Simulated assay, not measured.
Amino acid sequence: MSNPLKFKQVALDTLKIEQHALDVLATQIDDRFVKACEIILACQGRLVVTGMGKSGHIGRKMAATFASTGTPSFFMHPGEASHGDLGMLVKGDVVIAISNSGKSDEIMMLMPLIKHLNIPLITISATEHGPMPQNADVALTLGLSQEACPLGLAPTSSTTATLALGDALAVSLLDARGFTSDDFARSHPAGALGKRLLLYVKHLMHTDLELPKVSPNTPMRQVLFEITEKRLGLTTVVDDNDVLLGIFTDGDLRRLIDKQQGFDVNLPVAEVMIKNPSTISADARAVEALEQLRDRKINQFVVTNDQKQVIGVLSMHDLIRAGVA
């Protein structure tokens, strides 16, 4: 029969053991770590991460983290590498090889070509003992610590420490490169951050034939047709050079009807348009447009250029549809 208290105790014991492994790892951060960062920063090719078994799973995550934080990287399976995938390696690359024991047979088979191509080798293992760290340009170590598995067999604490060491490398390199949130967004264009940082008003605004425009002398009958046809809830009012004079929205129409109990359909829009409407630049970020729309409690922006000419319209619906809101 299961014992809930036992589950909790084992969980807490596991976390304490893994936390201790990280404490041990912290004592291993020395000049070797600095040298490894310098080698990777000087890399003219890609950072290639390799490892077998659980080390391979950690290596895949490490490569993904490097790649998304400014260090071009990919994972190479050592078993597949000896059957053709070794062609992935070229001069100018750097290899990180992971093996807690420091003696993975599959990785050792790759050593001759790594040396032949004069590719810098960084190893990650528990200690500096073993053929892998002995043949490395930099041998990073995790230090000796107990696995959280009560049998002492399943990689647990060692993989946690390896993952943390990979994160430490990636973040150190990120800092050294001056990697910014904009840089991060460029490698995550489909994510929420990417949309917030990469999408600009010019990417979302309605232009050309979708853009509602009328002249100031246009009678309200035609104004209503323009609003209805373009389906943006407004029309811009411009002069002969497309300079913005005002706007008229469907909300303005409702207010006009309530106020006048009907109106003359031949009334020129210039007499009822809203002058000096809110505008935004096409080069503004979409997220900035969203914040301003919310602050001003409006639903649309007219997009103008430096000459105050109308070049687009952006609505709250466009921002929601693009996933910015």
Rank of each mutant, 00 (worst) to 15 (best):
V90R: 12
L198N: 01
L197T: 00
M1S: 12
R321D: 09
K213V: 05
L121Q: 02
N241C: 11
N118I: 01
A11W: 11
L173F: 04
I114H: 05
L253V: 13
I107F: 00
T69Y: 12
L144W: 06
A26K: 11
P219V: 03
M132Y: 02
G233C: 06
R294Q: 15
D175A: 14
K308T: 08
F179E: 06
N299M: 11
N3V: 02
V313S: 07
Q134H: 14
V310M: 11
T159S: 15
M62C: 09
I17S: 11
H116M: 09
P131W: 01
M132N: 07
D31P: 00
T123Q: 07
T180S: 15
L89C: 08
V237H: 05
A36E: 08
I98T: 05
K297F: 04
L204P: 07
S55I: 00
I257C: 08
V223S: 05
T65C: 06
I298T: 12
L169C: 11
L314Y: 09
S104N: 07
M52H: 02
N299K: 14
A36L: 06
L117C: 10
P216S: 05
L163D: 07
L232W: 04
P4Q: 06
V313P: 06
D242N: 15
L290K: 09
A26I: 01
I98E: 06
S2T: 02
V90S: 14
L140E: 13
D283R: 13
L140S: 13
P212N: 01
P212R: 01
L89N: 00
A26D: 08
K297M: 11
G178L: 11
K202W: 06
V313E: 04
L113C: 10
I227T: 01
G323C: 01
L244C: 11
L151F: 13
I320C: 04
G45K: 06
L169T: 03
G166I: 02
L234I: 07
V269Q: 05
L113N: 07
Q44N: 15
R177C: 06
Q300H: 14
T159G: 12
Q292I: 07
V310K: 07
I39M: 05
Q307G: 01
G194W: 01
L211P: 03
R221T: 10
N241D: 15
D175N: 15
L153Y: 08
V237E: 05
S99V: 00
D252M: 10
R285P: 03
D167L: 06
L86I: 08
A42N: 15
Q307A: 15
A136M: 13
G251S: 12
R255W: 07
R46N: 12
P133Q: 13
K308A: 12
A164D: 09
H203S: 03
L174P: 02
G262W: 05
T279W: 09
S82V: 15
I40Y: 05
A325V: 00
D208S: 13
L165D: 07
A136G: 14
V201H: 01
K308C: 09
R60G: 00
S82H: 07
G51S: 03
Q9P: 03
P120C: 06
Q19Y: 05
T27A: 10
D318I: 00
V49L: 12
P133G: 09
D306C: 08
K61P: 10
L5Q: 14
R294Y: 08
F179K: 02
D318Y: 03
L121R: 03
E288S: 15
S187M: 10
D239E: 11
E229A: 09
H129A: 15
E38T: 10
V313K: 02
G233V: 00
L319I: 02
I257H: 12
G56L: 01
T156P: 10
